[in-house]
Each structure stands twice: as structure tokens, then as C-alpha cells.
Amino acid sequence: MSTKLRIMVPVKRVVDAAIRPRVNKAQTGIETQGVKYSINPFCDIAVEEALRLREGNKDLVESIHAVSVGGKKSQEVLRTALAKGVDTSTLVDVGEKEVETLSVAKVLAKLVEQQKSNFVLLGKQAIDSDANHTGQMLAGLLGWPQATNAAKIEISGDEVTVTREIDGGEEVVKAKLPMIVTTDLRLNEPRYASLPNIMKAKKKPLDTVTADSLGVDITPRVEILKVAEPPARGAGVTVETTDDFIAKIKEKGAL
């Protein structure tokens, strides 16, 4: 017997991966003015994988729903997901402030319930906070099995086999649906959004709800006191000969 997949893909809007973030003048966070934002690359990979699961086997996937927890502008990344082929989407409008991971996981857990999702595919981490624990917390809250850092996903019947990236190699794990999988870089190369699909996406559903309406309290419990750049590296020195070089590293105590 095989269960049809109702996939949920959470996506986050972050400073574009190709842009070097800078600390703002007030040292309270990173500079957001005049900076390009895009879909988090790992989330993009999750969207791509959901689409490929459907393209690989039409009968396998019943629906793909994207969710973003963020400000109004997070609609942009939902439109991107819809333009690539996701069916429906929900923005959980929490205003411009960063929401703590546990709150995000609680919001997602509620939506999983509402949407009757049985497979959550999400990025292993967002490249802004690099926290790498949304998927794990969600698995904890739902009591579902999880496979993180996926490099390959195979589904047969109720069974999901995931090849994981681990230090120095790969690990293959297996679990039954419902399940959480977080994506790593090698899983796939995300597609371009085609113009016909971008046009179609404008008519696809994009609901907006608040955390309140889901009954989740997102009051932060951690206060950020200061954000600073790592100390700049000192200038290097040029040495003339190998002997000078050896003398120099001895002087620094490295030899």
C-alpha cells in the first residue's frame, strides 16, 4: 500500500547568497537597506526536490505546499516557489523581526496539522543565521522520524531512504512516513523559473495568516546585544628566502 505524499516545503527569504553581508552601523544586526534578498539556497533545493519527486512519479505526490515565516516581502520567495511549480502557499506574517527557530518550528507544526502534510522537505539551514535546527525541532515537536543533510532521497511505498552527507562520507538511513528531511547542497541543482510558469504562478493561491491565528506565541526569549564583524586579519609579511620564512614561523612559535 502506498501513501500519497502531501509535501510541505518551508522557504525563507535571506540576503542573497552571492552578497557579502555587512554589520549595520548600530551593530544590532546586518545591513538590510539596498541589499538583494532571495530564496535561501537550501530551501531552493528543497523546492526542486519536491518537484522532482512529482516529475519522477506522477502518482506519488498529491500536493506541494510552500510556507514562509517572515515579513510581507517573503511573498517574493513564495512566488518563486510557485513559479517553479509548487501548488499552493501560505505566508505566516510575523512582521520584519527575526523569529526564533523554536517559534518557527511551532508555527510549522501547526501548519503541518492544518495541511495534513505527511512529508516535510526543508533546507538544512538558512544561510543568514546558519542555525541548522528548524528541521530537527519540528521532528521533535511532531514526534516524526527525521533524516538531515540529504544528498539523495528515494521513496518506495511508505518507506523513505535517504543518503546523508556526513563527515568523511555518506550514511544511508531509512524510515517510514510521515517524515522530515532536510536538504544538503549536492541533492540537486535548482531549475530556472520559466516565464509561462511565472505567469501561471500569479494566479496560484498565496494565503496570509498570523502566528496569533495559529495560536503560537512568538515572543523572543533571546536578546541580541551586539553584532560585530570578526576581527580583520592582520597584513601579511613578505620574506625573501626560505631561511627567512623558517625563521619567521619559528619566531611565531609555529615550528
Binding site: A18, D44, S194
Partner: peptide, 20 residues
């Protein structure tokens, strides 16, 4: 781009979604 599609001037196309 929509106008180009509708008027049949272009047959297909993609729009970059991020810097990469």
C-alpha cells in the same frame, strides 16, 4: 515579458531568481 509571450514574439524564457 508577458507581452512578448502573448504576442508570440518569444517561444520560451526564464527569469533569474537570485544572484547565482
Amino acid at each position: 515579458l508577458e507581452a512578448l509571450m502573448e504576442e508570440g514574439i518569444i517561444t520560451d524564457g526564464v527569469l533569474a531568481q537570485d544572484e547565482t
